[in-house]
């Protein structure tokens, strides 16, 4: 058989097996098969491959495995984090060594945590991923990307005090005897027990505290405000003043919850929200009209899925270069 013909013959055979051929095509194929025994053999081989496919799809079990994908993903993420923190693992080869290294690592890290908690500093860093942690008093913290939290001791005496760079959401266990204090740049946030977020990235002009429940005292050397649920305090370093206002950003926790709501939100604000929620680097080129507004809500969607929706509703065009996405056109 002619090699050049191979593709078109295979196409005819596939078509015939899938019952997509016309009567003429079928007749032509039949006469080709009868021309040489090698032709017939070729046909039969492909037919078997075809049957193999059908056999596979018929046997595909419809029964769903009892697997909780969210749980499995969380499990994998925690393993990934371990692996990234311990690059030494890649130096080992052989399963036994790997297991031994794993045990050693767990032993060392639990000892280190124990030892640090006695009265050394503990530093927790979230770099590429958000990270949840529980403090010695049972309070929980979710650290946003590129953020770190440090504290000394194990909170067994005095004020419970931590230092934050970056952004975090706190849920503080109530203890009236022992206020909980957060140092963030030139500000102090003090609470007895409540939930709120603090955003204090270096390189950003402000420090912002947004309260979800309870009461928070937010202070700098120059001013002090008390914030209640739904309120937001913003510290400006130049004046060292703190301004209080109702929180108008429905998405202030979207980096943690992955829930995003846009209501007639400008494209610029949409992009800022997405960058905060996903740690992405989306830019808008100057040629895109500033009047574009978006109304949409997303729950647990990937950045790709969100972009796909925006793309079709706003007729966006964008180009992706490495980690950066640049919006270069919009039909609004």
């Amino acid at each position: 058989m002619d090699i050049d013909q191979n593709d078109s013959i295979n196409e005819q055979i596939a078509k015939s097996l899938a019952r997509e051929t016309s009567a003429e095509e079928e007749a032509a194929l039949m006469s080709w098969r009868q021309q040489a025994s090698a032709n017939e053999k070729h046909y039969q081989d492909l037919e078997k491959a075809f049957d193999a496919g059908d056999r596979y799809y018929q046997s595909q079990s419809k029964a769903e495995l009892a697997i909780d994908l969210d749980k499995e993903w969380a499990h994998l993420q925690s393993r990934l984090m371990e692996a990234e923190e311990a690059p030494v693992r890649t130096l080992w080869s052989g399963q036994t060594l790997r297991i031994a290294a794993g045990i050693l690592l767990v032993a060392i890290s639990s000892f280190v945590v124990y030892w640090m908690n006695r009265d050394q500093s503990t530093v927790i860093v979230a770099s590429a991923e958000t990270r949840s942690l529980t403090l010695p008093d049972g309070s929980t913290v979710v650290l946003n990307r590129n953020s770190s939290l440090s504290y000394t001791g194990d909170f067994s005496e005095g004020v419970r005090s931590v230092t934050l760079t970056g952004e975090a959401f706190f849920e503080i266990v109530r203890n009236e005897q022992r206020p909980f204090q957060i140092q963030a740049q030139a500000t102090t946030v003090e609470v007895l027990g409540t939930s709120f977020s603090v955003r204090a990235y270096q390189g950003e002009p402000e420090v912002a505290v947004t309260v979800q429940t309870g009461l928070v005292k937010f202070s700098s050397t120059e001013s002090e405000v008390k914030l209640q649920a739904g309120e937001r305090g913003v510290f400006t370093p130049a004046t060292r003043k703190i301004a209080k206002a109702p929180n108008e950003d429905a998405n202030f926790l979207s980096w943690k919850t992955h829930k995003i709501i846009f209501e007639s939100t400008s494209l610029q604000a949409v992009v800022e929200t997405l960058n905060r929620a996903y740690g992405s680097q989306i830019m808008i080129s100057a040629t895109v009209p500033a009047t574009c507004a978006v109304t949409a809500s997303f729950d647990q969607q990937s950045l790709e899925a969100v972009l796909a929706v925006l793309k079709s509703t706003l007729n966006l065009t964008y180009r992706i270069q490495g980690n950066k996405i640049e919006i270069i056109g919009a039909g609004c």
Binding site: A14, L46, A49, F50
Partner: peptide, 9 residues
């Protein structure tokens, strides 16, 4: 389709 068959074979 033809590619799939050829590769499977």
């Amino acid at each position: 389709m033809s590619k799939a068959l050829a590769l499977l074979r």
